[in-house]
Design a binder for these strands. Structure first.
Ligand SMILES: [Mn+2]
Ligand SMILES: [Mn+2]
Ligand SMILES: [Zn+2]
Ligand SMILES: [Zn+2]
Lengths: 138, 138
DNA sequence: AACACAACGCAACAGAGTTGCATTTAAATT
DNA sequence: AATTTAAATGCAACTCTGTTGCGTTGTGTT
């Protein structure tokens, strides 16, 4: 597992307190985290706008990928293996607690048929249901 | 193709101007429409809150299904064949113009593997790329 | 140490969606 | 046709996510 500072350098991003903190939290998380989630769990002081901009930059750089939950809230997850566009792993979204999990399973984009003239770029698969904790309670 | 008033009756929903107008527009549309899209294309007078509530009610009744676009905007589409949960058709989302199209292709939920203790309810597949008009222009 | 540009903090803003409550209306009942 | 009632509506105020502009600070480089 690569170090936080090394990753920032590789993407020509300046090494700041917030960036290191955000990346550190997300690399340790097995779930996608929202702006609000991160606000709560970050130790350092920061401005909310700066966090939005940090997440954008990380997404554009391909360090994070963004998943939209059913309420339209963006969740971000660390991208361990770079997304090529040909393969995309699926996400599990809990209908009870809203948590987003990256699944191992991948879906092939080539096989999907689209109308004439349409060009495919990415495929995004969301499985919705109840996570282990929420399924146990109900 | 069933009539608008008939559908409302079957779901025990009162037959109002706005509901008839919304359903009528969406049944004719081959694309998912947002609150804003509908606001623009509806002929009748209505309050924006009422339209939000109308869309919620239609979704809960299974008359419409909701698709989240990459900007977190909800788009609604008429559900011709009722969704059983076992099958779910995919959606194409244009990265340029943001339009949402229902695709014919269906994906089987059973085959997807999820972690121990997780229970699956629905599968949601989004293909992103460029629609025929936007692909032609670039 | 000096420099340049990227990143930051702050304030103000935009837009989607929600909540509470009083008023109206569809549709059932008489 | 008049009465009744629960459902639907309209309005105002609000919450929350995300954005924009701009002056200030800080990282990385020379
Ligand atoms: Mn993921
Ligand atoms: Mn659809
Ligand atoms: Zn859960
Ligand atoms: Zn398009």
């Amino acid at each position: 597992m690569k170090g936080v500072e090394e990753i920032l350098q590789q993407h020509s991003l300046k090494n700041t307190k917030l960036r290191k903190a955000v990346l550190s939290v997300l690399m340790r998380s097995d779930k996608g985290l929202s702006h609000q989630d991160l606000s709560r769990s970050l130790e350092v002081d920061f401005d909310r706008v700066t966090l939005f901009r940090t997440l954008h930059v990380f997404e554009e750089s391909g360090i994070l990928h963004k998943i939209m939950d059913p309420h339209g809230i963006a969740k971000y997850a660390y991208t361990a293996k770079p997304v090529t566009g040909k393969h995309c792993h699926a996400h599990f979204i809990c209908l009870e607690c809203g948590q987003v999990f990256c699944l191992d399973e991948e879906f092939p984009l080539e096989e999907v048929k689209v109308p004439k003239g349409f060009s495919k770029k990415t495929i995004d698969v969301q499985i919705k249901g109840y996570c282990n904790k929420c399924a146990a309670q109900s």
